[in-house]
């Protein structure tokens, strides 16, 4: 149980895909103009991650080493297409705004990375815990980034306008430069926070 918890928490902070490992950046920057888009993208990616992690962990002992990578690609692409079609059917508006970034989940390095580094070497249950943690870490990052961009760039939060007047949104934040600017600041904050936390941890002697 303790091991599962560790697998789960790992993806949220110490190995946060975007802020720490610098992977999966493309969709994060591209669609983080509103929180709704961010959450949608995060959930879609998490679904694919869970599906591919579970499937790969289940078949890990059957698939020969030599064709591991192509099999992983097929498994991931299958889950991505299922997500793509389901979103077109049930969330057409979101599907349209996310556009090519839904099929591009295939090449999101987070998914291939977890398949190769974790799911292909661990039990299905641990693979699920890992997928959930990574997915939640990804969703949280997206919510923070898109929240900041929507608030500063459009003056709204979850599409609702602010309760007070007098705040003039800085349009640049929802334009492409704002995405790069926001992620730069966010990584800086994350790095600095994380350093503090690690130092504190050492003092108390906890591992």
């Amino acid at each position: 149980m303790k091991q599962l918890w560790k697998d789960f928490v790992n993806g949220i902070i110490s190995e946060n895909a975007v802020l720490k490992l610098m992977i999966g950046l493309c969709p994060v920057l591209a669609i983080s103009t509103t929180v709704v888009n961010g959450v949608g993208m995060g959930l879609a990616t998490t679904f694919v991650l869970l599906g591919s992690n579970l499937t790969i962990a289940l078949i890990r002992n059957i698939v020969p080493k030599e064709i591991r990578i192509p099999v992983f690609i097929i498994v991931i692409a299958t889950f991505v297409t299922i997500t793509d079609l389901s979103m077109a059917a049930y969330f057409p508006a979101l599907h349209k705004t996310l556009g090519i970034f839904i099929p591009l989940i295939v090449v999101n390095c987070i998914i291939m990375g977890r398949a190769e580094a974790f799911a292909s070497r661990n039990t299905p249950v641990r693979a699920i815990a890992d997928g959930l943690g990574m997915g939640i870490g990804f969703i949280l990052t997206l919510i923070l980034l898109s929240g900041a961009r929507e608030l500063l760039g459009n003056g709204t939060i979850f599409g609702a306008s602010l309760p007070f007047k007098g705040f003039e949104p800085a349009l640049i934040m929802i334009l492409p430069p704002g995405a790069f600017f926001a992620i730069g600041i966010m990584i800086a904050i994350f790095n600095n926070l994380f350093k503090l936390k690690r130092d504190g941890g050492h003092k108390h002697g906890s591992a």
Partner: peptide, 16 residues
């Protein structure tokens, strides 16, 4: 094996 995996995938996708 690759063919088999592709076939399963194509089948699942056609269904969806």
């Amino acid at each position: 094996i690759l063919m088999l995996v592709s076939a399963i995938s194509a089948g699942a996708l056609s269904y969806v």
